[in-house]
């Protein structure tokens, strides 16, 4: 079974933004498998306090952003980013963190990272399935992760691509991935473990 990720002396505390748009259960289960303590948060304070804030998301951009604003989580995420505290955005969570998305006729995003989400124009849409991800830098990877999306980032802050599509974005404390690590089997757990370890090394 899953090896302990070595999160001693205390477990990392991850706050998962619960705003009515996301498969939060799978994110929660994956982080717990890695030894993290997880909390589903509906209000700003615990989102600011945690070692890692996770912004999951599936569904449509406009209703997801409305869900974040209703709960004041949009401001909390901006405040967290300004303070340099780690945030992980997943799938729609990454797209919402950009400056804007063209989904739902154009919606302003949180602006945690530069760029915009645009509709996929090639291949079968939605783009659903496992696809290799190649990272910028010394370890290019090539492992396959699970994707399920109709929009993708256009950004100068891309740190990984998959079939020419932006697969990861990094801007200061914000890391966003277009794939679903929580649904990407062993490869996904390895990715999440690396994220948790990086959070702890910053803490």
């Amino acid at each position: 079974m899953t090896r302990s990720p070595g999160l001693e002396p205390r477990p990392l505390r991850a706050a998962i933004a619960a705003y009515g748009a996301g498969n939060v259960r799978s994110v929660e289960l994956a982080l717990r498998r890695l030894g993290a303590e997880t909390e589903l948060v509906h209000e700003p304070a615990p989102l600011l306090d945690a070692d890692l804030a996770v912004l999951p998301g599936v569904g449509s951009a406009a209703s997801a952003l409305a869900g974040l604003r209703e709960r004041g989580l949009d401001e909390a995420l901006r405040e967290r980013a300004a303070a340099g505290r780690p945030i992980l955005g997943i799938c729609l969570g990454l797209q919402l963190a950009l400056e804007e998305t063209e989904e739902d006729g154009g919606v302003e995003g949180l602006g945690l990272a530069p760029g915009r989400a645009v509709r996929l124009r090639e291949g079968r849409v939605p783009r659903i399935g496992w696809a290799p991800v190649h990272w910028a830098g010394p370890e290019p990877g090539g492992e396959a992760y699970w994707f399920a999306h109709s929009y993708a980032p256009e950004t100068p802050a891309a740190t990984a691509t998959s079939e020419g599509i932006v697969a990861a974005v990094e801007a200061g404390p914000f890391l966003g991935v277009q794939f679903h690590p929580e649904k990407s089997g062993a490869a996904g757990l390895r990715f999440l473990r690396a994220v948790l370890e990086r959070c702890l090394s910053r803490a």
Binding site: G59, S60, L92
Partner: peptide
């Protein structure tokens, strides 16, 4: 599709 997204 509106609530869950087409991908679901």
């Amino acid at each position: 599709a509106e609530v869950l997204g087409s991908q679901a």
